Amino acid sequence: MSYEIVHTFGFSVYLVFLLMFLWTYRVPRTNPGSGWWAASISFALLARLTLVLLIPSGDMKLIVTAYAVLNVLEKPLLLTGLCRFLGIDARERWFWIAAAAAELWLLAAWTQDASTLARSLGYSVTNAGFMFAIAWFSYQRRNDSKGWLHMTAAASAAMGVHWLVGPVVIDFQPGWFKTGFVLGTILVSLQYLSLLGAMLTLFQRRLVDAEAKALDMAFLDPLTGLNNKRYMNTLFDHALLLATRPHHMVAIFYIDLDNFKPINDTAGHHVGDEVLKAIAARIKGIVRSTDICARVGGDEFIVIGTQLESENQAFEVAKKLLAQMMQHVQVGDRQYLLGASIGISLYPLHARDLHKLIQCADSAMYQVKRNGKSGYEIYKAQPGGEPQLQAVG
């Protein structure tokens, strides 16, 4: 295999990685590591391109020195990108001091006409140091990216050994020069592949988190954390599955807080919000895991009680809810007394779809309001079809 083929292959592989990192860098709010890795692979790409262009000249001193000057600049960019990606607070100026020292070594070797081994060892030791640092940082944070950093650590450690041993082996076995470039290309490709995988894993995590947040925004009330009205229809279908046994029923409790508006008007909406959150917490503390609770308006809540065997069980739930609503709510150094009007409807006694059941419960709740507030009533239809309300609280 000729040098042209080896370096053209390396150039092509590095170009693909450059394009991938540039693509990830353009993703909004992307991790800064991607931009640094795009810069580092650019210098690796330029180093390989320089080799391809200078090989026909046959001047090994010029070829090796030009390659080394560009290759050294890749390493601090690569390590800086890793530190930025992992959020490691490193003294990055030392990366550039080390790179500058390697460049000065190359300049001195060029002007003093040093041997190939002496010229190579100076920057090879620096490059090996960078590789071992990358391996160490990656190993420390190996669990952050679903195993990708395991590969980064292994490839970087192997690359560090390669940089230390390679110049010595080439000095004794010049034929190893081509083999060393092939091995180096493979290890560098594994490094950047693992870093790209870690970056894409981060994107996947962001996508999953964003999806979860979107679902929360779509289905949960942002203030109280209860389900919202939109999601309640879907949950009701699941609740009906729990009411398939004979004599089982589902109860709809429509809760409208009493005396809430004066709190908002006198104490402010921020206090009103705290009151609503406290009420929501009390509701969640009463209901069972199979029940459903939702906020459907400013101070209106719905509880869907499942697996009930009788109306009396629904009354007991309403009694517990009312007792909680009648207790003072502490916000800061002040206490507020509310109360609640609760209307009840039953599936399948009053209706078989959620919309009509809510209408029935809402009607019962307004009757509580008309009767003086702070109570509960169950909706009951007359035999002739006219609605009738049965007061129970």
Rank of each mutant, 00 (worst) to 15 (best):
Y3M: 04
L18K: 01
F21P: 01
T24W: 04
T24G: 01
Y25A: 14
Y25I: 11
N31R: 03
P32W: 12
P32G: 05
L51N: 04
V64T: 05
T65K: 03
A66E: 00
L73T: 14
L77P: 09
T80K: 05
I88L: 03
A100G: 05
A101P: 15
L106T: 05
L107G: 07
D113N: 15
A118F: 07
L121G: 09
Y123K: 03
G129I: 12
A133H: 06
I134K: 01
Y139G: 11
R142F: 02
S145C: 02
K146L: 04
W148A: 13
H150G: 01
A154M: 00
A154W: 00
V161A: 05
H162A: 03
P167H: 05
V168D: 01
V169C: 06
P174W: 07
G175P: 13
K178A: 13
V182R: 11
T185Y: 01
T185H: 03
L190M: 12
L196D: 07
A198T: 05
R205W: 06
V208F: 13
A214Q: 10
L215P: 02
M217P: 02
L220D: 03
N227E: 04
T234S: 03
A239N: 05
T244P: 02
R245T: 10
P246Q: 14
M249Y: 01
V250N: 13
I252C: 09
D256A: 10
K261H: 12
D265I: 08
V271F: 09
K277G: 10
S289T: 05
A294L: 09
Q307G: 00
Q307K: 08
L308A: 09
A314D: 10
F315A: 08
E316G: 04
V317Q: 07
K319N: 12
M326P: 04
Q330W: 11
G332C: 14
G339D: 15
A340R: 03
S341P: 07
G343C: 11
S345V: 04
P348C: 06
M365W: 09
Y376R: 14
Y376V: 00
Y379K: 06
